[in-house]
Simulated scan of single mutants.
Amino acid sequence: MAKYMLLIHGDAAQWEAMTAEEWAAHHAAHAAFREAAGSRVVGGEQLEPAPTATTVRGGVADEPVITDGPFLDTKEGLGGFYLLEADDLDEVIRLVSLLPEVRATHSAVEIRPVVSRG
C-alpha cells in the first residue's frame, strides 16, 4: 500500500470570512472524508494561518536565516494536510473528491505520493 500526502491549499482570507454555519458544513465534509477513508488516514491536521509560519533557510557561513511567514507568490497558502495510505491514485482521488476544498473556488487539494525507501 502506498502513502500519499494531501496538501490542502486555499485563501486564508476566504477561510477567515466563513460564517459559523459555513464552518459547520466544512467540518462535516471533513468528517465524512475521514469516515469514508477510515484507517487509510494515517495523520492530518488543520494548520494555523500562513502568517504564523517561520521559514528557515541556509545563510552565510552555515548560519540559518530565519524569517517570519512563508514565501508566497500567491494568495493560496497551505491550510492543512492528510497523510493517507491507499492502493492507488484512483482510490485517493475518489476520497479527495469528498473534501470541500475541491468544490470551493479559492482552494485545491494537491496529492503527492510519498517516497518509499524500503
Rank of each mutant, 00 (worst) to 15 (best):
I66E: 12
H30Q: 14
R103P: 01
M5W: 11
A24H: 04
K75G: 10
G59T: 09
L95F: 00
Y82V: 07
E35F: 00
G69R: 02
V56I: 15
L47S: 09
G38N: 02
L72T: 14
A50T: 08
F33R: 03
Y82R: 10
A36D: 00
A17L: 14
D62R: 04
E16G: 07
K75Y: 04
L98R: 01
R112E: 00
A86T: 09
G58Q: 07
G43D: 14
A17H: 01
A86K: 01
L83K: 13
L78T: 13
S107D: 05
E76C: 06
E110L: 11
R103E: 04
M5E: 10
L99G: 00
A13R: 13
E91I: 01
M18G: 02
T54N: 07
L47Y: 05
A25L: 04
G69D: 07
P70G: 12
D87V: 04
A24K: 05
L95I: 00
V56C: 12
H106K: 05
T55V: 13
S116L: 09
R34E: 00
L7D: 09
L95K: 00
G77I: 10
D88P: 12
R34F: 00
P70W: 12
V102D: 02
V102K: 01
A86N: 05
E101S: 11
